[in-house]
Design a protein around this nucleic acid. Structure first.
Length: 507
RNA sequence: GGCGCUAUCGUCUAGUGGCUAGGACAGAUGGUUCUCAUCCAUCAAACCAGGGUUCGAUUCCCUGUAGCGCUACCA
């Protein structure tokens, strides 16, 4: 049978990092098996409806490259259903669930329950006080047929509950967790249809996975305890259950389930901070899965080639931002410059260093910036960036002349006099150097080093002040790189101007 | 409280009935170097505890402990 997986988020307004990993694994597995991949929206909770949340999920799925061939999509700004098993929004499938719930009632596998919330709350309180498992006491399960009919006729609000068999066992076979045996005694008579006419997850997920011909249900570990209820439903409907694969939880530093309170959990937050989707995917894939080799860097193609449930771990994995940072840095370094620049410009804009108008980009001081100019600025930091959002702080000196500080200008193994002298000498040398010698940092380096040795100078006392005069920073890219980039963006004058300003400052 | 899952360096993890328990991130040190970053080298760092089984257990079994998850008319 053709493999078919589905990612079935509920529209909460943002995509959780854990959901990203679930979606990724669904995608990888279906791709690996040349199967189908469905996006279904589980929006059966009216109380939690959030405007625009579905569009956000869809946008992110496309943005992250997790393309699906069936399910809800956006076309001309409107939600549409793609595929023959729709609708793919559960809120639009109410009639279907109602029908199946009725079937369960008819066959005695579900029953009407008229207990109100007050009673249920009291019941729970009592049970908690007695330290027994809080469960529905099945009061309505054995109501007489006439009683039920009369209640219904009166229009009493009701829910429909699953009639769990009393003394039985359910065996959950899981691709990751192997086999889990659960006694039905520990299972609650779960609500399947709410009083507002919407189904709960437990009904809708079973009905939809069956109707949509899902072969592999891939979801978070938190669903293991309710899987027996789902299996029971498959059984009473006389349906073949799909295969299940539960994924270990992603955890906070303190090993609790990854939550909003302890930092960012939304994929869009990480995107906003300048993490690349390739890095995010690579990172999240390695949380709970590993290739059993030393490979750390994976493209999405490599992942789908190598993925398997046997290699998924059963223990939860702590989300370690430091490793993400490292990975992101790796991807930033690997990226080609025009692409990196394109992605970095928004952060330069946000930092107020660059602005766009009808003629193109401009620096804050009004200077026009060509695409190449911005590229040469970005190139300075390509090797150093961990995330794109750091760019503004790091290249600030490029857009406004540095504020000097003698402690920084003078090399630790040098002194004021020597610094002044060397700065003057190198300034003079550069003034007389043809502008085209600045085109590449390498040739400029060769020229300057030649100048240093010809004048019996040393690298340190010349290069340090040269670099700090250009950047004003204790730590920065090298003087040749900066000079070359400055020349490309502003012309040689800017270099000379900065050197003179530094010399003047030292006087 | 009940049910379930899990347990190897700080973190992600590999691994085996007998190994100096491997890799990566982070950390430390050194090299390269004008600084930072990169790169290279080196170091430090772990088998939850107790019982079995066994000639031998980190590995298999049991118990305990700890952590986490579920325990809604949320998903």
């Amino acid at each position: 049978m053709k493999v078919k997986t589905r990612f079935a988020p509920s529209p909460t307004g943002y995509m959780h990092i854990g959901s990203l990993r679930t979606a990724l694994f669904c995608y990888l597995f279906s791709r690996q098996n040349k199967g189908d991949f469905v996006l279904r929206i589980e929006d059966t909770d009216q109380a939690r409806f959030i405007e625009g949340a579905i569009e956000k999920i869809i946008f992110l799925m496309h943005d992250m490259g997790l393309d699906y061939n069936e399910g809800v999509d956006v076309q001309n700004g409107r939600l549409i259903d793609k595929g023959e098993f729709g609708p793919y929004q559960q809120s639009k499938r109410r009639e279907i669930y109602k029908e199946y719930a009725q079937e369960l009632i008819k066959t005695g596998h579900a029953y009407y329950c008229f207990c109100d919330e007050r009673r249920l709350a009291d019941l729970r309180k009592q049970q908690e006080a007695m330290k027994i498992a809080p469960q529905y006491d099945k009061k309505c399960r054995y109501l007489s047929q006439t009683q039920v009919q009369s209640n219904l006729k009166q229009g009493l609000p009701y829910v429909i509950r699953q009639a769990i068999p009393e003394n039985s066992q359910v065996i959950v076979k899981d691709l990751v967790y192997k086999e889990i045996v659960i006694d039905t005694k520990t299972l609650d008579d779960q609500v399947l249809m709410k009083s507002d006419g919407f189904p709960t997850y437990h009904l809708s997920v079973v009905v939809d996975d069956h109707l949509m011909q899902i072969t592999h249900v891939i979801r978070g570990e938190e669903w293991i305890p309710s899987t027996p209820k789902h299996l029971l439903l498959y059984k009473v409907f006389n349906w073949d259950p799909p295969k299940f694969a539960h994924l270990p939880l992603i955890l906070n530093k303190d090993r609790s389930k990854l939550s909003k309170r302890q930092g960012d959990v939304a994929v869009e937050d990480y995107l906003k901070k300048g993490y690349l989707k390739e890095a995010l995917i690579n990172f999240v894939a390695l949380l709970g899965w590993n290739p059993k080799t030393d490979q750390e860097l994976f493209s999405i193609d490599e992942l789908s080639a190598q993925f398997s449930f046997e290699k998924v771990n059963r223990a939860g994995a702590v989300f370690d931002v430091e490793k993400l940072d490292w990975l992101n840095g790796m991807y930033i370094r690997k990226m080609d410059l025009p692409e990196l620049t394109r992605k970095t410009i928004p952060y330069l804009e946000k930092a107020g260093l660059v602005a766009k108008d009808k003629n193109g980009y401009k620096a804050a001081n009004g200077n026009a910036l060509s695409q190449e100019a911005i590229e040469s600025i970005v190139k300075l930091e390509q090797e150093r960036l961990k995330k794109l959002s750091e760019i503004g702080e790091r290249v600030k000196y490029f857009f406004s002349r540095p504020q000097y500080n003698p402690q920084i200008l003078i090399w630790k193994k040098s002194n004021l006099e020597q610094t002044k002298k060397n700065l003057q000498a190198v300034c003079e040398f550069l003034e007389n150097l043809d502008e085209k010698e600045f085109a590449s940092a390498q040739t400029l380096e060769a020229k300057i080093k030649q100048f240093i040795s010809e004048n019996n100078l040393e690298n340190g006392p010349v290069l340090w002040p040269l670099r700090t005069a250009l950047s004003g920073l204790e730590a920065s890219p090298g003087p040749f790189e900066i000079a070359s980039a400055l020349c490309r963006v502003y012309g040689k004058q800017e270099i000379i101007a900065r050197l003179r300003a530094a010399i003047k400052f030292l006087e």
